[in-house]
Nucleic acid binder design. Sequence first.
DNA 1: TCATATTGTAACTATGATAGTTACATGAAA
DNA 2: TTTCATGTAACTATCATAGTTACAATATGA
Lengths: 139, 139
Amino acid sequence: MKRNSKLSIALHVLGHMAVKPEEPFTSEQMAAFAATNPVVIRRTLGQLRGAGLVTSERGKLGGWKLSKAPDAISIADVYRALDERLYVGNKGGDENPPQCAIEIGLAGAINQGLERAENAFQHSIESTTLEDLAAALRQ
Amino acid sequence: MKRNSKLSIALHVLGHMAVKPEEPFTSEQMAAFAATNPVVIRRTLGQLRGAGLVTSERGKLGGWKLSKAPDAISIADVYRALDERLYVGNKGGDENPPQCAIEIGLAGAINQGLERAENAFQHSIESTTLEDLAAALRQ
DNA sequence: TCATATTGTAACTATGATAGTTACATGAAA
DNA sequence: TTTCATGTAACTATCATAGTTACAATATGA
């Protein structure tokens, strides 16, 4: 089992979809692309559907399609749709709020750093699109 | 159990040490500061000793001390000494090297983004020192 | 030299996040 | 009405990491 593989699974299968944007792909086909399980594909693409990046149809002739042109979907769009963060801080719920003044000051410095890191990351991956990934496959 | 707590544990106890830089602290005392176990402290500070940030002495009167002035140790120094990264990519060992052209192109784009994020993070936390953390406690 | 207090570290357990899997209901098409 | 697809709940497997126990090594001082 790989950790943090949701993004790479998603981008991998979306790259394949981008090669033939009109053709619906089943979750079984895509599971083969990414060497994983169809249910994992459905769960992951389900999140992307919620963000308007893909559509799905049930029944015979069903499957998944991109809902925009491949060059209109960036890696950053997918990253944000999956709601991932570079660094998951110590429990969002925070049932143990920091008491000590050190922890409080520390959280400020760290969080500012993380925010800048997050911005730098998203900015960097904003310029690569699914079309770029598909192009790599066509060669 | 908190994830990614090594850095926050380390900085928390180092902040306390920075208030009294000449006094040796035992791992038991520091475990109390950070609400954790003495062995966890020894393991964590052991890494920092390897990086020359702290020293330790065994036996009676033993314990841990900073090996530099508190304002000469930045949060970034500690972060680097612990060898943490914002994002641990899919297994450094890589017994499953990427075959598909999509994965290869993808890795390039993602890794460039991660490198930029990492740089932004370290740069941001470079300016906060243990002295700043200690100051928060003195007020 | 012995009692005591401390670090150093190996080995194990516990926890939690996440992927993988099974099973089945829902829905669409021929 | 058969077939094939998604949707999703519920469970299992895996792995990273923190926590814990146990004990050897070492330093101090009576």
